[in-house]
Design a protein around this nucleic acid. Structure first.
Ligand SMILES: [Zn+2]
Ligand SMILES: [Zn+2]
Length: 790
DNA sequence: AGCACGCCGACT
DNA sequence: GTCGGCGTGCTC
């Protein structure tokens, strides 16, 4: 019998390898299909990744129990990509495979128990519905033992089924049984009173067959009973066909306008097109408004004409209806969109359209890098500096790395586009690894650039309140008078992030974490942003019982309150994680603000940046230092990117906008260069510091976080790791730590962190893989690894 | 991750 | 005696 190598869906270090299974002759199995196999004493889902003739397993091989798919759901490239991910990001092979499937196919093989004739009465309540979803976590040990006994007596039966059922959408159609040529004769046979019969055949004559029943009943106005009767008579046939659930708007058939290209655009297109059959990476460094998107479109057109496909990655926030219709205008329904707002059904159907070769271009967010397009001719990563291209949860893959991997696999060019490229990309361009193309001119040179003012928060004379400087306050009130809109950024949600007793100095901290509790006046709670702990706002100090409590660290809620005090007529709208967590609420806030239902939008950077509103003529960054002072090596870069983006966009309409940046560090280079929109100078200054401190792009960094409920165990494990790694690394690699993580205790778990700075050290990476296998065998310690390369 | 096995203290 | 808690080890 044939032998299949199978990755089982048991994501642990110890099972992170293939297991051999026999393929029964009656089963049709191919690589990339999902199967059900017996693993130990239970059944799990597995992926067939290879076939071999012999095994080196000494025991008796089991047979594959069941095949889930009738054709492969993963192709050869995706299987290879999963391997690459495992090596690069220290993740389980099987976890990587799930990453490439649409949500509808992500399911477990679940165990159910069916009752036959249960004699053990104590178990009866569990089986009130006749069956029980077996989950050892929710059943006590005693219950499990009793169930085992009942199974042995054949009073219960085990069945397995898939946790997720695939749904498809169907629509009803009619097929004419009468040939088109014979229809006029058919119409003649009908009596003049048969209004609907006449109408029906006329419609078939002009629009052809088949036709959607819904179209005939809703739009043409033929009653359903007429169609049923025609079907009974045998002159038409009613049937159901599948239709794709599509997120695309019923294409407004807006013809693409022929845009004339600037000299810079034409040159860029020409240069990249000349490299179509290489895997060259291009860095398209272009200021806001220099027309990068049109370059992507024009190149895509060339690629698709030659029979190849395109992936364009954009940040979630840029994937607007305007962006979609821009590409739709050129490529019609041959495009697919891919983002988290798709329903499970829509995503599944987009995935199948891609797999069935019905799509030439995929426009999507990070996870779109995994779509099964064959024959790629171009991959674009727009706004390549965006942090969201790296997934923050496991597996912590980086879509930019994968874009280059796929470019190499298909021998096609990759374009990284940004006004503020990552230091890594820009440095690679400097070393000729990437080809640098700069766009310094705006497509519309008459558009006004906003004026940028930096306000020194240390200047007491220019201070109106804790939050606003006089200048910003005045500017805001002016906009309100003129009925123009304002956006204010503050990277801190809630009312205040610190509550203190003025009498004894007691501070309210989270009982589970080493952080202060954030005050949320809107929902009347103190809450922890790290573990989710919530409690009522205390009226008095638990220590001295005084009631004089005071808050520090103003957040977005407090900003709204101060604006109300300034002028109660100004309406505000808040946009942060608290107001956008509900599905659709984000979209709703945007549309409300677009329709001028509020004068001022107060948002956190991470949620509200990158938005564009034509009536906004003032943008205020309330405290640039919050992002500048974050304890991360790229805090300056992130701040510069944000400020540059803000300063490049405000006031795109007729009037030039104004940007006010409030800071305690007005002379910081990240702030000064952002004001001047001078990326190149920022790049030089930041590179100097990165080199001095040995950070990216001079060194890659692997962060290893060791977490445990027992602090000493976390520390000891981290120390052991440090020792083992230091014996198995090359000279260039440096190990920093272990040190307590910047918040040592989160949710009553303690974290110690190691940082490995390396340039090229395969030995160290190998060792790390091996060590982890051994260390993580007990579940008292969690190890999290992020490999930061971009 | 499950799931079983085996060892040891405690309780009808 | 036997019940149940947890540590250990294996899964083709
Ligand atoms: Zn007190
Ligand atoms: Zn907490």
């Amino acid at each position: 019998m044939k032998i299949a190598k199978i990755l089982v869906d048991v994501p642990t270090r110890q099972t992170d390898r293939t297991f051999d299974y026999l393929v029964p002759a009656e089963l049709f199995v191919e690589c990339g299909m999902r199967v059900v196999v017996e693993f130990g004493r239970r059944k799990v889902t597995g992926f067939v990744v290879d076939f071999v003739d012999s095994t080196d397993f000494s025991g008796r091989l089991k047979e594959i129990s069941e095949v889930i798919d009738d054709k492969p759901v993963l192709d050869q490239e995706q299987l290879k990509m999963a391997q690459f991910l495992a090596g690069q990001y220290f993740t389980f092979a099987v976890t990587n495979l799930w990453l490439m499937l649409p949500g509808m196919l992500k399911g477990k093989t679940e165990k159910y128990l069916i009752v036959h004739n249960l004699t053990d009465e104590s178990l009866l309540p569990l089986f009130s519905e006749g069956t029980l979803r077996y989950d050892s976590k929710t059943l006590s040990a005693t219950q499990q033992k009793k169930i085992r006994a009942a199974l042995a007596r054949n009073e219960l039966e085990v069945v397995y089924s898939q946790s997720r059922v695939i749904t498809k959408k169907y629509t009803e159609i009619i097929n004419s049984k009468i040939a088109l040529d014979d229809i006029p004769a058919e119409i003649d046979k009908l009596s003049k009173q048969n209004k609907y019969g006449q109408l029906f055949w006329q419609t078939v004559l002009t629009e052809g067959s088949p036709l959607a029943v819904k179209h005939l009943t809703k739009e043409i106005g033929i009653p359903r009973r007429v169609l049923t009767k025609l079907a009974q008579e045998g002159s038409i046939e009613l049937s159901k066909v599948e239709i794709y659930r599509t997120p695309l708007a019923a294409s407004p058939k807006k013809k693409s306008q022929l845009l004339t290209h600037t000299k810079e655009q034409s040159a860029a297109i020409k240069e990249i097109a000349a490299s179509f059959d290489t895997d060259q990476t291009f860095l398209l460094e272009g200021i806001t408004g220099s027309g990068k998107t049109e370059i992507y479109r024009a190149l895509s057109e060339k690629v698709i004409k030659s029979g190849k496909k395109v992936i364009i990655l954009v940040p979630e926030i840029s994937l607007t209806p305007q962006m979609i219709s821009f590409f739709q205008a050129s490529f019609n329904d041959r495009i697919a969109v891919w983002h988290s707002r798709l329903s499970r059904g829509e995503q599944y159907d987009e995935w199948r359209r891609i797999k069935n070769n019905e799509v030439d271009l995929v426009l999507g967010v990070r996870s779109a890098i995994f779509v099964p397009l064959k024959d790629l001719g171009l991959i674009v990563v727009d706004e390549e500096h965006e942090k969201s291209y790296r997934q923050s949860e496991n597996p912590q893959y980086d879509a930019r790395e994968l874009a280059k991997w796929r470019g190499n696999y298909h021998s096609c060019p990759v374009i990284f586009g940004s006004a503020t490229p990552t230091l890594t990309s820009r440095a690679k361009a400097e070393r000729q690894i990437y080809r640098l193309i700069r766009l310094d001119k705006r497509v519309n040179p008459n558009g006004h650039l906003p004026t940028v003012q930096i306000v020194d928060l240390r200047d007491r004379n220019n201070r109106s309140s804790k939050i606003f400087s006089e200048d910003l306050k005045r500017a805001m009130l002016e906009r309100f008078e003129r009925k123009e809109q304002t956006i204010l950024f503050l990277n801190r949600r809630g009312y205040a992030n610190f509550l203190e007793c003025r009498n004894c100095g007691y501070t309210f901290n989270c009982p589970n974490c080493d952080v202060s509790l954030t005050l949320h006046l809107f929902e009347h709670r103190l809450s922890c942003h790290y573990c989710g702990y919530k409690c009522a706002i205390p009226m008095s100090c638990p220590n001295c019982h005084e009631t004089d409590l005071r808050s520090f660290g103003d957040g977005t809620e407090k900003v709204e309150e101060e604006i109300k005090q300034l002028n109660p007529e100004i309406t505000t709208i808040r946009m942060d994680r608290d107001t956008t967590s509900r599905k659709g609420s984000y979209q709703k806030i945007i549309s409300q603000f677009e329709h001028h239902e509020a004068d001022i939008l107060v948002g956190t950077q991470s949620v509200a940046k990158g938005l564009n509103f034509p009536e906004v003529t003032l943008v205020g960054v309330l405290n640039a230092d919050i992002s500048l002072n974050r304890p991360e090596f790229d805090a300056s870069e992130v701040t510069f990117d944000l400020l540059t983006q803000v300063a490049g966009r405000a006031g795109r309409g007729q009037t030039a906008g104004k940007v006010i940046i409030q800071t305690y560090n007005p002379n910081h280079y990240a702030i000064k260069e952002a004001k001047d929109q001078n990326y190149e100078r920022f790049f030089r200054e930041e590179m100097y510091l990165r080199r001095l401190h040995g950070y990216l792009p001079y060194y890659y960094t692997i962060f290893i976080k060791v977490t445990s409920k027992e602090e000493m165990l976390a520390l000891k494990t981290a120390l052991d790791l440090q020792k083992l790694l230091s014996e198995n690394k090359n000279e260039q690699t440096q190990i920093l730590g272990p040190a307590p993580y910047y918040i040592k205790r989160i949710n009553n778990e303690y974290t110690y962190q190691l940082a490995l700075k390396y340039k090229k050290d395969e030995k160290m990476k190998m060792t790390l893989h091996e060590i982890i296998d051994q260390t993580q065998s007990n579940n008292k310690v969690k190890i999290n690894i992020s490999n930061v390369t971009c």
